[in-house]
């Protein structure tokens, strides 16, 4: 075998998988993505891609080639997880599950939208429900239940405070509480920095005016 051929065979095709995010992908079992032939069937059947700039194939390509900006791309939150791409992929890649794992990596890096963070931190962690009916602001929902002959609260975590504690115990155990705390701190810091930047801007404008 000539040197050239040997070089060609041994060349590092997936050079970019050495990048940090690509490594995280591999750790998360996403190496299946390497089977992707970029046919775009996932994008073609995507109901979100019909109305937004979200492109499934492109997002996964960017992730696999180590383009970290994909983690901050709001587009990855436009997937409605309908699983059409998962079913149709001719290479058998569990595409939707890959998007979900990509989102996990994004969240771990602190890239989570505010409404999602509030839902996790202030609603689900606190009540055990994603959509609760307890508490002061939710009287009308309890009244609505009663109007259909049901007890004001369902026999879920809402009727069992010890069950809420069990859920919180589990979320601590798997590291979710720590993750939420980390993100909360990060969000506070970002907020302060933004406020500071805003204040500086106003200050600069003032100075400019004075100069004139």
């Amino acid at each position: 075998m000539s040197d050239n051929v040997e070089k060609y065979i041994k060349r590092k095709v997936y050079k970019s998988t050495n990048s940090r995010i690509a490594q995280k992908f591999v750790d998360a079992g996403l190496e299946k993505l390497r089977a992707c032939i970029n046919c775009g069937t996932c994008t073609g059947g995507c109901p979100s891609g019909r109305r937004t700039a979200y492109r499934t194939r492109s997002v996964l390509r960017r992730a696999l080639t180590g383009d970290e900006s994909v983690l901050e791309d709001i587009g990855i939150w436009f997937c409605s997880t309908c699983y059409t791409c998962y079913e149709r992929c001719p290479r058998g890649i569990p595409v939707t599950d890959m998007i979900i794992k990509l989102r996990n990596i994004a969240v771990e890096e602190g890239h989570i939208l505010d409404p999602h963070f509030v839902l996790a931190n202030k609603v689900f962690y606190v009540t055990g429900h994603g959509v609760p009916a307890n508490g002061e602001g939710n009287q009308k929902w309890r009244d609505l239940r009663e109007s259909y002959g049901l007890p004001p609260l369902p026999p879920t975590v809402h009727m069992h405070p010890e069950a809420v504690k069990e859920c919180q115990e589990l979320m601590k155990s798997v590291g979710f509480r720590d993750l939420l705390d980390k993100i909360e701190k990060q969000k506070e810091k970002e907020k302060l920095e933004a406020e500071k930047a805003e204040a500086n801007k106003i200050e600069d404008k003032k100075k400019e005016k004075e100069k004139k």
Binding site: V157, M159, E162, C167, L179
Partner: peptide
């Protein structure tokens, strides 16, 4: 029969997308 003390499933589009281990352990509970 009632499943006393059951919680949010947890919702796949949000909580599974945030943290898979949380989604899995609460679903298992």
């Amino acid at each position: 029969l009632e499943l006393e003390g059951a919680s949010c499933c947890p919702a796949p589009g949000v909580f599974r997308a945030f943290h898979i281990p949380t989604w899995l352990v609460i679903a298992a509970r």
